[in-house]
Write a protein that binds this DNA or RNA. Structure first.
Lengths: 335, 335
DNA sequence: TTGTATGCGTTATCAA
DNA sequence: TTGATAACGCATACAA
């Protein structure tokens, strides 16, 4: 009984065969006679042999793991996407490692560097900046990357996203239809793609309705978290009546839930005093006591498609694709 | 410009030095003269050299990655724990891979098997079953494991948990104090450690208050998700007045939020018609429109401590410890 | 059907 | 200070 973990060599010795035969038992069992195969398998069981994936990978050149580097593990939207990815990966017999950038560029960078050093088979990424040169650099080394939840103009890799501009339109069209003539757009930080696209769509719909641009009030936030939603609530409450919006469109549900919470807690009614539309339609949106109207994204399908695309990169004639899903407005009591 | 990614050998050739010197530049830069070091570094930059961690690990025998196998990535409690783990790991310059068991024993098993094959440096695990023989088996192979959010009687590894029995007591003592004499305990599946311990604490407090055991009504659920909380709400509403509890203690916040949602949506008031206590104090608990009373667990600290314990296993005289934190009741409007 | 030998990219030991 | 060389554990081409 040795101290270190047993290797093929130990198994071979124990089974009285050569090292190559043990390898064959694992990788091409048809080439080895049933009798010796059984003997080898018995030896593996006795010794508690576990294949060293590290060595296998060094020999083969590529690993059997995928990784999803997500923007914010605490946002249920991304864990749902991860769920979709994992379902697809599981079907292909591949494991998924999750990495959390936590909205930090440096953390994203260090995770990506680590994954490249590990020579993972492929990376799914919801980036802080989809135009970062890091991404094509990784692809150039031979590690396929699929961008999730962001579109890209780059033809060197695939992306799977939801039409955020359309989502913004749907939200604002809904509010205009409900008679709102002064609406707040809540979201940030400025420059974040998801936020800018949703805002662009909102503005387009606003202007097409013939409403004065100044009455769609942009209210920037530092993050996409619920705390910032609450702060916006205080801000809105402090506005003089004529300048106070009658509705708010938030760039995600966390913001919307924070805003909703602050509004109700301070004695104003939703939607009577303030109508609220969120984005993502996370579980907690429907479960809020004033159920939240939200723009639904096909989260799980987004993940599934991204994983399928990534897995297909292994195939010979893979053509990079930019997949765009359509969002859908789910109207509830908050409007 | 070769097709495959450059190796130390390529760097050595390009810099006109031996392969050993390149390795020294990376691992013991003091042993190489500034001049050649610069030359080597230049060559690495030119070629876009990235160390093959797989080969390094094969040679060294151990990797520089930790992994947290979590029970349910969609439960905010676990992502907060993960956050704490990652903070500690980051401080030590180590990357963290997240794996999601998604409440499935087979998925947990396949993740663990994969991690053992990868020879990761250590594993943090919130298991479905802390008494599974798999865990000591992994430890026996030399991969340290720390159990997170479950206690263990096993002396072969560390664990970090919160006193669930005490948490159960706190919740029920609070409800008894508020005058409730018929209380539902909501949670499942039966046998899940977290649920059983919280129930045990609840019952102990109930009996110490001299109340009839039958008036603490156990209402099992299939999962810990919000949907099951809603179903329990319907069940409670359907009970005849004298058998209907005036309060519910839910084994986690997702259940509590579902129950809260269903109760309010069906026209009953919280806490007047039904008081509700949750468990975990996830963000959405405080943000619910009827802010939820909940038993708070030090989530981030839990993760941080677990990671520190795991990292300390590398040290010579490590003694396995079972750390137990104390939960705390946060009273809000739902009671 | 089985055994032998080679190399994957790296680190570490030993000579020079 | 640098260079040559032997492992680490595995998969595979080729020989037997």
């Amino acid at each position: 009984m040795s101290d270190r973990t047993p290797s093929v060599k130990d198994v071979a010795a124990s089974a009285g065969v050569s090292l190559g035969t043990v390898s064959n038992v694992m990788n091409r069992p048809d080439r080895v006679s049933p009798a010796t195969r059984r003997r080898v398998e018995q030896a593996m069981a006795d010794l508690g042999f576990v294949r060293n994936e590290t060595a296998r990978q060094l020999r083969l050149g590529s690993s059997r793991t995928l990784s999803y580097v997500m923007l914010d593990a605490r946002n249920p939207f991304f864990t749902d996407v991860a769920q979709g990815i994992e379902t697809a990966a599981e079907g292909a017999g591949i494991s998924l490692f999750l990495c959390n950038s936590n909205n930090s560029a440096s953390r994203e960078a260090s995770h990506l560097a680590h994954l490249v050093e590990q020579r993972v088979q492929g990376i799914l990424l919801t980036p802080l900046d989809p135009d970062s040169p890091t991404i094509p650099a990784i692809v150039a080394r031979g590690i396929p990357v699929v961008i999730v939840d962001r579109t890209t103009h780059d033809e060197r890799f695939c992306s799977v996203a939801v039409d955020d501009e359309l989502g913004g339109r749907l939200a604002v069209e809904h509010l205009v239809e409900r008679g709102h003539r002064r609406v707040a757009f809540v979201g940030g930080p400025e420059g974040l793609g998801q936020v800018e696209d949703r805002y662009a769509g909102a503005r387009a719909a606003w202007e097409e309705a013939g409403l004065p641009p100044g009455d769609l009030v942009r209210m920037p936030t530092a993050t996409m978290g619920a705390d910032d939603g609450r702060r916006v609530g205080e801000l809105i409450a402090g506005l003089p009546g004529r300048r106070r919006p009658t509705a708010a469109f938030c760039a995600n549900d966390l913001l919307a839930l924070g805003l909703l919470q602050q509004t109700v807690a301070s004695g104003r009614a939703v939607p009577a005093d303030l109508a609220i539309v969120g984005y993502d339609d996370i579980y907690f949106a429907a479960a809020a006591t004033v159920p939240l109207t939200s723009v639904r994204q096909p989260r799980v399908e987004l993940g599934r498609t991204a994983a399928e695309l990534l897995l297909s990169e292994a195939e010979a004639e893979h053509v990079h694709r930019q997949v765009l899903f359509r969002p859908e407005l789910v109207a509830r009591a908050s409007t």
